[in-house]
């Protein structure tokens, strides 16, 4: 009912009067559909979110049966930033790897999705193959596969150091050495070798972005491409003027998804530190502060990206 009252000029007056009853009924039905979700969101999202925010600003200690909190202002934040020896380093490396990996994952998965979307024999097989890392290379399995735990060698070695050892032993090619001998500046050498060793991790994280992009590509009407071919557009122009603008909504979804995926990975050093603090030492206040600071910075960064994206690019494309 409120919706109809707010925009009365768009609807013709007599029609409005006729449908008003149905509309109010419909809005009631709408509320009915989302009522369970509203309750759940309050209980399992809003309240815990505020609780954890409060923990980060207070001293928390556990008494048998209950948790006691006392507000202490910025104490926890000051402690983790000034006195904790590892936090600032972890924070910095986590933020760096987040903003480094995010664009790579998005670009790589977009390219792969476009290739997978073309028509050629065997494309269904490749499509189903590309989803496999979502099942295999996630969470705990990944951690077991790529880490040296308790003196057991990792099954898959990815780090630069071990690769150097291997290449020296077998006489294989080491990209770092090659790039250095070509007199590239060290910055570029580092990034390049980082990219090469990262390619495994990147491709394993691409499973769902590829699926999302593929779904988005399916919604682009074929006629647009036909029309552009008739007009004489090149493939490059087709990509920038048709594919990308038509994928704008998908791109937003992929950004959001990749963000959650990167943030919640077990390999994230900040999360690891906070989790060990929580589970091993039952320190809930500082760990909460650690997580809030990290997610706050990331949230701010991504918020700016999404804001610019919707304000500039989406406007330009639509």
């Amino acid at each position: 009912m409120d919706a109809t009252l707010k925009e009365p000029k768009k609807v013709k007056a007599p029609k409005k009067k006729r449908i008003r009853g149905i509309e109010s009924k419909k809005s009631m039905y709408g509320r009915m559909f989302i009522l369970p979700w509203c309750i759940g969101m309050l209980l399992f999202f809003i309240i815990p979110l505020f609780q954890s925010l409060i923990y980060s600003f207070s001293t928390v200690w556990v008494e048998p049966g209950l948790m006691e909190t006392e507000l202490s202002g910025l104490e926890n934040y000051k402690f983790i930033l000034n006195e904790d020896p590892n936090y600032t380093n972890n924070l910095w490396s986590a933020i760096q790897s987040f903003f480094r990996n995010m664009p790579i994952i998005i670009i790589v998965s977009l390219i792969l999705a476009i290739v997978l979307n073309q028509k050629y024999p065997g494309r269904m097989i490749f499509r189903s193959v590309f989803f496999v890392p979502v099942i295999v290379a996630t969470g705990v399995v990944m951690e077991l596969l790529t880490k040296n735990l308790n003196g057991v060698d990792a099954i898959i070695t990815l780090t630069t150091e071990t690769e150097n050892v291997y290449s020296e032993g077998t006489g294989g090619m080491d990209f770092t050495v090659v790039l250095q001998s070509l007199n590239f500046p060290e910055e570029i050498t580092k990034t390049m070798s980082g990219l090469i060793t990262n390619i495994f991790n990147t491709l394993w994280s691409c499973g769902i972005p590829i699926i999302l992009f593929l779904a988005g590509l399916q919604t682009i009407p074929e006629q647009l491409y036909e029309a552009s071919t008739v007009e004489g557009a090149t493939k490059w122009e087709e990509f920038w003027y048709i594919t990308l603008p038509m994928l704008s909504q998908t791109l937003l979804l992929v950004i959001i998804f990749t963000m959650i995926d990167l943030l919640t990975q077990n390999t994230n050093p900040v999360i690891q530190q906070a989790y060990t603090l929580m589970s091993a030492q039952s320190v809930y206040d500082q760990s909460a502060a650690m997580l809030w600071l990290f997610f706050g910075i990331i949230g701010l960064g991504v918020g700016i990206v999404i804001f610019l994206y919707t304000k500039i690019l989406l406007k330009k494309w639509n």
Binding site: M41, F44, S52, T264, M278, L291
Partner: peptide
């Protein structure tokens, strides 16, 4: 927002609840 906020941040209060 529920999609974006990572589950780790809610884990302890959820556990206590």
């Amino acid at each position: 927002l529920t999609a974006i906020v990572p589950v780790q941040i809610l884990a302890i209060p959820l556990y206590l609840n």
